[in-house]
């Protein structure tokens, strides 16, 4: 078509095509991205059951419960980030395509976040309300989770790349990713706690945003290196 050989697809165009493809694949299998969401609801339901359901107590616990549940369910979702594509050879094709692999994997991370991170963020106000958070706190909680889930998707992609094709990948993935996610958890939970107390939460938000920027620049490079190793 108009003298375009398949090799002359620009990196931006390839990233966009990849996003469309992954979104379409994800939409055809809603079970995969709904499961982490359901898991998020279940875990947050367990917290009041395991402690006592007084609203004042729950309000104190809400940031911790929200963020630990979000962290665990994003971890659950990470397993499927590269699994299918690693098994059917798509990742190898991407690596051999001559386009920057880090860019393509960043596109994949974007889709992964859209399918697993974003539903979580949208579900969070519901859970926060159930934990007794005031209405006024909802925008800040949304913003914190929005930033945090992006960072978790990006950082987690490194772990998913490293455990690509391993037999005991699941538990190992948790062991690799959770320590790296400590800063996100701290700042996210802190921002949420400040928001629920109706105090300005700008400071931890800025830190979260800084982590997002840093991981958006560095994590794709590490992910690409990890995936290349995993494909050997």
């Amino acid at each position: 078509m108009n003298g375009h050989s398949p090799n002359s697809v620009s990196a931006a165009r390839a990233g966009w095509l990849l996003i469309q493809r992954d979104l379409r694949l994800g939409m055809r299998r809603p079970g995969e991205w709904l499961q982490p969401l359901v898991f998020f609801f279940v875990v947050t339901t367990l917290f009041p059951l395991a402690t006592d359901p007084q609203m004042s107590r729950l309000r104190d616990m809400a940031p911790g419960a929200l963020w630990v549940a979000a962290l665990l369910s994003s971890l659950l979702a990470l397993e499927m980030l590269f699994r299918e594509d690693g098994q059917d050879g798509t990742l190898e094709q991407l690596a051999l395509s001559g386009l920057p692999l880090s860019w393509l994997l960043l596109s994949k991370s974007c889709v992964h976040w859209l399918l697993t991170g974003l539903p979580l963020v949208l579900a969070a106000p519901l859970v926060a309300m159930a934990f007794g958070a005031p209405y006024a706190a909802i925008p800040a909680i949304l913003a914190a989770l929005l930033l945090g889930s992006v960072a978790l998707s990006l950082i987690g992609a490194v772990g998913a790349g490293l455990t690509l094709g391993l037999r005991r990948g699941g538990v190992l993935l948790a062991l690799l990713v959770l320590p790296l996610a400590v800063p996100v958890l701290i700042f996210g939970a802190h921002a949420t706690a400040l928001a629920i107390a109706l105090e300005p939460a700008a400071a931890p938000m800025y830190m979260l945003a800084a982590i997002v920027v840093l991981s958006a620049t560095l994590a794709p490079l590490a992910t690409a290196a990890a995936v290349r190793i995993g494909l050997e």
Binding site: V158, P179, L180, I186, F187, A222, A226
Partner: peptide, 19 residues
Amino acid sequence: ASAVLALVGVINLPIIHYS
């Protein structure tokens, strides 16, 4: 693979420490 992890950890260590 573990070398990549060690390097990622080295970038993260100061962040973890300060956070």
